[in-house]
Computed example of a mutant assay.
Amino acid sequence: MRTPTRPLAASALALAAGVFAGTAAPAATAAPPAADLGHHEGKHAKKDLVGTALENGSFTTLLAAAEAAGLVETLKSEGPYTLLAPTDAAFAKLPAGAIADLLKPENKEKLKSVLLYHVVDGKALAEDVSGMSEVETLEGSMVEVSTEDGKVMLNDATVEAADVMASNGVIHVIDTVLMPEG
């Protein structure tokens, strides 16, 4: 059974707007660290990418942006997809006003482009990309893959948790929002 996303995404959008307007999220919305996603690992994940991210609670801004860009249904579709998922903390590192600007209706295509830069067609597990130097995103650009001090890097983002399984793909949790060139 799929979780309805409209009311949750609307509240996520409101929370994201508050975070980027300089207000803090209430303590009750504090989420477990992204590393706690490990309990989702397994071959028979029951939730799709959106449900898995929503359940964790560390991806409120990502989900709000996906809703604003009209990408929720894509991320809930059969796939499979690999989601390079920036945490709320990753979005908070962006310059002041950046997210609020991207969430404006007139910037929907730019927001969609940024988000599609975080999605790879197919299910790319960590072992699949080891040894690769880049992967192509649905946005059409490449993301560099490297290892630095024993950590996997995607451009300048560090992978905090890898191979979080969903019914329609896999999530790799990253600590920085990836921005396509241009």
Score class of each variant (00 low, 15 high):
residue 109 E to C: 05
residue 181 E to L: 08
residue 84 L to R: 10
residue 37 L to N: 07
residue 124 A to P: 02
residue 85 A to Q: 15
residue 37 L to E: 08
residue 67 E to M: 04
residue 9 A to H: 13
residue 136 E to G: 04
residue 126 A to L: 11
residue 49 L to N: 05
residue 70 G to V: 08
residue 153 M to K: 15
residue 151 K to F: 06
residue 79 G to K: 14
residue 24 A to W: 04
residue 175 D to Y: 03
residue 6 R to K: 13
residue 51 G to R: 09
residue 119 V to G: 07
residue 1 M to R: 10
residue 94 L to P: 00
residue 159 V to E: 10
residue 2 R to M: 08
residue 108 K to G: 00
residue 74 T to K: 14
residue 44 H to Y: 03
residue 3 T to F: 06
residue 156 D to A: 14
residue 93 K to G: 00
residue 47 K to F: 14
residue 122 G to E: 02
residue 107 N to V: 03
residue 17 A to E: 04
residue 114 V to I: 09
residue 5 T to S: 12
residue 12 A to K: 03
residue 34 A to I: 08
residue 133 S to Y: 02
residue 46 K to R: 07
residue 107 N to S: 15
residue 100 A to Q: 02
residue 133 S to V: 05
residue 139 E to P: 15
residue 20 F to A: 00
residue 115 L to H: 08
residue 5 T to D: 12
residue 79 G to T: 05
residue 178 L to T: 10
residue 141 S to D: 12
residue 112 K to P: 10
residue 147 T to F: 12
residue 130 S to L: 12
residue 103 L to P: 04
residue 67 E to T: 05
residue 7 P to L: 10
residue 129 V to C: 03
residue 30 A to E: 15
residue 67 E to D: 14
residue 42 G to Y: 01
residue 98 A to I: 00
residue 108 K to L: 02
residue 59 F to P: 03
residue 150 G to N: 11
residue 154 L to G: 00
residue 13 L to H: 14
residue 118 H to E: 03
residue 101 D to A: 13
residue 50 V to T: 15
residue 108 K to W: 01
residue 34 A to E: 11
residue 139 E to F: 09
residue 4 P to V: 06
residue 143 V to W: 07
residue 159 V to G: 11
residue 152 V to Q: 03
residue 147 T to K: 15
residue 174 I to V: 07
residue 180 P to D: 11
residue 147 T to R: 13
residue 60 T to R: 09
residue 123 K to F: 02
residue 127 E to N: 13
residue 32 P to N: 06
residue 76 K to S: 13
residue 46 K to M: 01
residue 49 L to E: 05
residue 49 L to V: 10
residue 80 P to E: 12
residue 134 E to S: 10
residue 86 P to C: 11
residue 22 G to R: 08
residue 69 A to T: 08
residue 179 M to R: 09
residue 91 F to A: 04
residue 182 G to W: 11
residue 76 K to D: 06
residue 7 P to M: 04
residue 158 T to N: 03
residue 157 A to Y: 08
residue 19 V to M: 12
residue 94 L to K: 02
residue 150 G to F: 06
residue 176 T to E: 01
residue 32 P to K: 07
residue 101 D to M: 00
residue 4 P to C: 04
residue 130 S to I: 01
residue 36 D to N: 06
residue 17 A to Y: 02
residue 176 T to L: 00
residue 70 G to L: 06
residue 121 D to P: 08
residue 45 A to Q: 02
residue 45 A to M: 10
residue 39 H to I: 10
residue 65 A to K: 10
residue 161 A to V: 12
residue 54 L to Q: 06
residue 164 V to D: 00
